[in-house]
Design a binder for these strands. Sequence first.
DNA 1: TGCAATATATAAGTTACTTAAATATATGAA
DNA 2: TTCATATATTTAAGTAACTTATATATTGCA
Lengths: 114, 114
Amino acid sequence: MISTDLIKGSLKTIVLKVLKENGRMYGYEITRKVEELTQGKIRLTYGALYPVLHKLESEGVLVTESENFNNRIRIYYSLTEKGHSVVTEKIREMKEFIDSLQSIVNPQPGLSHA
Amino acid sequence: MISTDLIKGSLKTIVLKVLKENGRMYGYEITRKVEELTQGKIRLTYGALYPVLHKLESEGVLVTESENFNNRIRIYYSLTEKGHSVVTEKIREMKEFIDSLQSIVNPQPGLSHA
DNA sequence: TGCAATATATAAGTTACTTAAATATATGAA
DNA sequence: TTCATATATTTAAGTAACTTATATATTGCA
């Protein structure tokens, strides 16, 4: 498991990216998907996930649809048009972040023409 | 520039890794080095850096030596023995983190034998 | 009947930061 | 000479993104 400190700032981007790839998802499903993609290394807590989803909804980044499945409520989230452009920007930034971390943990001394 | 939220949890690891690579460094020099390595994308603020350095020192991860340079005080930090093993672990974790982020932003659908 | 998995919600607490302000010297430009 | 910029460190006060804990409810398996 990766320490939560490291993951902290990335939660929103992770959620949005997974939603972009998979279309309509409910909260529980999102945590599952993230665990699957990261081989269990990233586990979103519900105390973090749901408030983030609510906030993104109130910002107009996500919309919800409630459905009934097996007598359980499921709240499906999907990106709005605004959401799509937000994700695009967030992912661009995250790639830049990953590159930056790479250049710190794997510095390339011979790379002078960068 | 990368949003500070994203960088937040990585500060300690970044500082320690840069110190590991460069041996003895003073605070200001560390921020310079990180900017250089990341082409200006990651800028450590002093309000974050110095408290972290002090904390790492109090934890026995770093030791300091004060020197006078051009009538200015410079406080050099270097890793203790404990520090070296802390960095090793932190870097291992950060690589895992980077891999996890990669598998989210660049999912590889055909990679079933992972 | 009792536990694990499924599914969402939220209040209270923590902490790692940001922002801002303080201090001091050297250097180059106007 | 005076102003801005770069160098160099310190710390107080505030924020917000989380964690932890708790609550609720159904399904299915042993």
